[in-house]
Simulated assay, not measured.
Amino acid sequence: MLDDMLISLDMANRIEVIKMILNKHNKPSLRFFDKFQKVILTHDKGFYNILKNYTNANSWQYYNLSKKENTNEAPKLRNDRSHIEKAQKFLADGEFDSCGNELRKELEAILKNYTDPDFSKDFRPLSERLESAYKKFTQNERRNFEKLFVNKDISVETLKKIETDYQTDGTLSDDDKRKLDIIKRELNRYIISQYEVQESKDALFADLKTILDRILNPSSHSSTTPLYERELEEAIVTIGKIKALLQT
């Protein structure tokens, strides 16, 4: 697919077309797209970056096709490495400032994709976007709780009996007891998962704030702050963790 037909659309509508082609919402009426191999070509770098954010590197491959001007040389096709891959290469080569710069770009892309999936013109500082991501993740946790427990087809009076030996309660129907069993089981799972996520989430966002101040900001500006290999290695791991957390 060439992007020619999309260039005349504004970015919001381009994104909607891409969502349809990729069937991001798994609509039954669009599943026929899933049967095709998709090749998308574009000369618009901004649109290309959006496509990368809407696709998965495990199932897509990204290439850059380029040609030197005013020569008869054939165009060259090369793999387009991610910011993380570039950061790892710079780290291996001892180019620590360049490594930090690529890590900053990777974190910006992760947070922008999470807090602003429709890619509006939002140019907030990275520190503010990090705070927005934390708030959004916390709000989503609350919504997930409501989906699991608040909207159940069960009365409040029946729900209160979850603290009792409701299996021997003759006033409850078998269906009510089954619903209470399900809610109790889901509640236990939810509490355990929240303890695990809460502990790792808070530590992860705290680490990212430190990385932002200690590594990402100095590497993107003129600074006398030295960068160390171990710090950059840990930053690569931490940014990988936040990407995995926000994609769940």
Rank of each mutant, 00 (worst) to 15 (best):
I191N: 00
S219F: 03
K136V: 07
E141C: 07
I192T: 10
S173G: 14
E146H: 07
E128K: 12
R14G: 06
P125H: 10
T42F: 09
Y195N: 05
S223Y: 05
E16Q: 10
D93N: 15
K68P: 02
K76W: 01
S98D: 11
T164S: 15
H25C: 05
S66Y: 15
K184R: 12
D97K: 11
Q61A: 07
D175M: 13
K201C: 03
L180V: 04
G170K: 13
D207T: 12
S222A: 10
L6S: 06
R31S: 13
K112R: 10
I84N: 00
R124T: 05
I183P: 06
Y63W: 12
Q88I: 08
K35W: 09
D181T: 04
V197P: 00
E229P: 01
F90H: 15
L9K: 08
T42P: 07
T225G: 07
F123S: 03
E186P: 05
N70P: 04
R185C: 04
T71G: 09
R104V: 06
R178K: 14
S219I: 02
Q198T: 10
R189I: 09
E186V: 05
K121C: 06
L107V: 04
F123K: 05
A92M: 02
D118V: 03
K105S: 10
D153F: 03
Y134R: 12
V237R: 13
F96I: 00
S219E: 08
I191S: 03
L103Q: 08
N113H: 13
K147C: 10
R129D: 03
D118L: 09
K147V: 12
R14L: 07
F36K: 09
V156M: 12
H83S: 11
S59R: 11
K179N: 11
K241Q: 08
A74F: 14
L2K: 14
E146M: 00
G94H: 13
T158I: 13
Y62A: 02
T210N: 15
I40R: 03
K67G: 08
E95F: 14
K68Y: 13
N26F: 09
A203G: 12
K121L: 08
I162M: 15
T71K: 10
K152D: 04
I84K: 02
M20C: 07
S173Y: 15
V17Y: 00
L6E: 10
N144E: 15
K86M: 11
Y54T: 02
R124E: 05
K19L: 07
N56L: 05
S220Y: 13
G46F: 04
I192D: 13
K161C: 00
L91S: 03
F205S: 01
L148E: 10
F149G: 03
D4V: 13
A92G: 01
K179V: 01
L212M: 11
L204I: 08
K241C: 04
E196A: 01
K35M: 08
L51T: 01
T171V: 11
I84R: 05
E231W: 09
K19A: 08
D165H: 07
P125F: 12
Y63N: 00
D202Y: 11
I239F: 01
D44I: 03
S220T: 10
N64P: 02
Q37I: 11
K243M: 00
E85W: 13
R78F: 08
I239N: 00
K35F: 06
F145T: 05
V39G: 02
K52Q: 10
L2Q: 12
I110E: 09
K68H: 13
L216W: 11
G240K: 00
N64M: 06
I15R: 04
L245V: 00
S200Y: 12
Q139M: 10
